[in-house]
């Protein structure tokens, strides 16, 4: 299971990558592994505002479904439309495929998220 450095992680197994005031959000390798073969991704609408923890989309696999939450508050400025045609790319490259990009409204929230080391420990605990 891959966990990348320099990303923020949530307890719902989402990652955040920050570039300036933009936050790229996606799902972790752990999440895609547990969902299984992903068959469909429902994306949020551009310009929608969300608070941290809100559901911004839905990820479906053959036998499971999971809400996608945003770990940070902000406004959606872009969604990864390529996922509509190729949802399986989330299985192959979860850290290379963001779901959406949000303009951060409260960057301090990032402090509530885990770093790679903390997230590794969190996943190990979850597996037990």
């Amino acid at each position: 299971m891959e966990i990348r450095e320099n990303l923020y992680y949530s307890e719902d197994h989402e990652w955040v990558r920050v570039e300036g005031d933009l936050a790229y959000v996606g799902i972790t390798d752990y999440a895609q592994h547990h969902l299984g073969d992903i068959v469909f991704v429902e994306l949020p609408e551009i310009d929608s505002e969300y608070a941290a923890g809100d559901t911004i989309g839905v990820i479906e696999s053959v036998k499971a479904v999971a809400d996608m939450h945003t770990p940070v508050s902000g406004t959606v400025v872009e969604v990864n439309e390529a996922l509509e045609q190729a949802p399986e790319s989330l299985n192959k490259d979860p850290y290379g495929r963001h779901i959406a990009i949000l303009r951060l409204s409260d960057p301090e929230e990032l402090g509530n998220l885990m770093n790679a080391e903390q997230y590794t420990a969190f996943c190990e605990q979850a597996e037990e």
Partner: peptide, 12 residues
């Protein structure tokens, strides 16, 4: 497309 259905999505 069973992910739409109650046995997977339950209360959603």
């Amino acid at each position: 497309l069973q992910a739409r259905e109650q046995h997977i999505r339950r209360e959603k």
